[in-house]
């Protein structure tokens, strides 16, 4: 177990370094750096610009810049935002809550609905319900999230005027009900693809399990059908879903980015896009490293959970 942990943590660290290198390179090699931002925004002289470049270290060779950034990050100094000089970790921290709220709500919705749909679909395979669920999942998986978000806004905010079209709360309100009303649409939109994925995984896992010999054994000893499905089959089918939880994190983060943008949700996804367009290198790199760590830890945690829940698995 500790051997497994050490190996996985080692792998994760190597991956993080690789991610940071690639991310850093792409960011810095992309046309239009922060200097052109500064230059276009105000009436600075060439001298001013040179001074800023010198201060931020942007005039040095890329490998040197990377090494410096990396070294500081290891010491806990993730740099300061180019926009307002705020420490990167503080910037991320102030946006994290909104993202976590959105992602957790969407994931919870997706798991509950997806697992129920997938289980029912497997039990009543090829029924009308199963066919509808299959077609629905295909559609959900093929609709781009931003498009679904815009449709949701149009229907529920513009047309029906039931729910707000963006932001986390109404300025000056912020009651639990107000928060909830703002959360519904983005969480629904983010949950859609996740639900489709969960229902597909759950359906195939359940189908796999109901054809196993031990289900036949349960029938042979006279277990009622409902108990076979709920106790014997469901438990075995749900176990591998824990791994899906870990695997889904990158998709979820990507979906959150789009959803936050569509719904002007003040989370990390929007911060990330804003920071890219502002060429706010320290914040972009900070979010990149933060979410990469989150993904790697998430999949590690999912594997550990799976091992705890499944008596057959022993990590070594």
């Amino acid at each position: 177990m500790s051997g497994f942990l050490a190996r996985r943590l080692g792998q994760s660290l190597v991956l993080l370094v690789l991610v940071s290198m690639v991310g850093f390179a792409i960011l810095h090699l992309a046309p239009g750096g922060p200097m052109s931002q500064f230059a276009s925004g105000s009436d600075m002289t060439q001298e001013d610009l040179d001074r800023i470049a010198e201060q931020l270290g942007l005039n040095r060779p890329l490998p040197v810049q990377y090494a410096e950034w990396f070294w500081r990050m290891l010491q806990g100094d993730w740099g300061r935002s180019y926009r307002d000089g705020e420490a990167v970790l503080n910037v991320i921290g102030s946006h994290l809550g909104a993202t976590l709220q959105l992602m957790l709500t969407a994931t919870l919705l997706a798991i509950i609905i997806g697992v129920v749909i997938g289980t029912l679909g497997a039990i009543r395979r090829h029924s009308i319900f199963d066919t509808l669920a299959t077609v629905g999942a295909m559609i959900a998986l093929s609709i781009p999230t931003f498009w679904f978000g815009l449709v949701a806004i149009y229907v529920f905010s513009v047309w029906l005027d039931w729910l707000p079209s963006g932001n986390r709360f109404t300025p000056g309100d912020g009651s639990p009900l107000d928060l909830l009303r703002h959360l519904i649409l983005p969480a629904m939109v983010l949950a859609l693809v996740e639900t489709a994925i969960w229902s597909r995984f759950m359906r195939s896992s359940m189908l796999d399990v109901v054809n196993q010999d031990y289900i036949r054994t349960a029938r042979a000893k006279g277990v009622p059908e409902a108990r076979i499905l709920l106790r014997h089959a469901f438990r075995n089918a749900a176990l591998p879903m824990i791994t899906v939880l870990g695997l889904q994190l990158p998709t979820l983060l990507g979906g959150a980015l789009v959803t936050e943008t569509v719904f002007t949700w003040p989370g990390m996804g929007r911060l990330f896009l804003d920071s890219i367009s502002y060429r706010d290198y320290p914040v972009v790199m900070g979010i990149l490293m933060f979410s990469a760590t989150l993904v790697l830890l998430g999949s590690l945690l999912a594997d550990l959970l799976h091992a705890v829940a499944d008596p057959r698995i022993r990590l070594g």
Binding site: R216, A220, R235, D310
Partner: peptide, 15 residues
């Protein structure tokens, strides 16, 4: 009652 051929797979692995 019945006993099956495949003892390796006929028991519920998680119980």
């Amino acid at each position: 009652s019945m006993v099956f051929q495949e003892p390796m797979t006929s028991l519920n692995p998680t119980t």
